[in-house]
Amino acid sequence: MGTNGDAPMAAGAGSIQVQGLGKTYRVADKLPGLGGTMRHLLRRRLRDVVAVRDVSFSIEAGEMVGFLGPNGAGKTTTLKMLSGLIHPSTGTVRVAGHVPQRRQRSFLQAITLVMGQKQQLIWDLPPLDSLRVNAAVYGLDEADSRRRIGELAEMLELGEALTRPVRKLSLGQRMKAELLAALLHRPEVLFLDEPTLGLDVNAQARVRQFLADYNRRTGATVLLTSHYMGDITALCPRVLLIHGGQLVHDGGLADLTSRLAPCRAVRLDLREPVPADAITPFGTVEQMDGREVRLLIPRERLTEAVAGLLAHFDVLDLEVSDPPIEELIGGLFRQGGRP
């Protein structure tokens, strides 16, 4: 890896400030059938759909932040506003010192938006052709762009995939080539919308590793949405949780887990079966199957309860765990509730 291309950003260069951000779309409803079509033609029924409502947060330069929420929560709409692709209905945004929707050249040079389900590479040509165009668009000189492509291709383990038509690449190779194209101009702020969508476990892990390395080497700010919690837990110490267009959590992933799951799960493997009554003083028994017991214990009482269990019973094995974060968040969204 060369030293020229990936020196850290200037302090504060890639910060994001969002205040009272909102987006309302006007949509036309159409009922099915001929009657619905005629009504749609003659008397269109329009209604406002609030996609994002009063969202405020700020992100320091160099932070990696996860952006979570179910489908339709407003994640992608927020990313589109932060990248300047669409204009907000309310509120203010500053990204890397710029107002995104003005789309000034210096702003566009400083950001990138990667959408996992969309591609910018030219389908019929090898990625190198698209990279050549991108390098020219961003004004990189020939030597600089060659070096950048070499460095990023090495980090992404792309190898000969760069010279094969995009349509003949595997999904994983294509996504990595998309990342290369999006990062060629060395953006300070990365908006990543589902960058590992559809990739197998190995490819996901490689993309995660690449993003972590890229952030460490360049100090770029990263705002990442993903349906794979593995992406978030591996990369983002901080998460924003959006639901129904509103921000419902801004903080550490561990804090979110605590809020969503006030108890921890304890699994006991006992030498002899014991009556349920004997266990209940230590927590809520979830399951008893002979010598195996699973109970939930409030976090604040965990140490005391585990010590009591070990003192009172002949324990062969004991395991303390948090419920998987995706289960917690999935449960929350199914209930339509808030943490």
């Binding site: 589109k80 990248s83 692709l85 990138t112 959408m115 910018q120 668009v137």
Partner: peptide
């Protein structure tokens, strides 16, 4: 098909 969006985010 969404191909316009990445072009709108480039300085061209």
């Amino acid at each position: 098909h969404g191909r316009l969006s990445p072009w709108l985010l480039q300085p061209l």
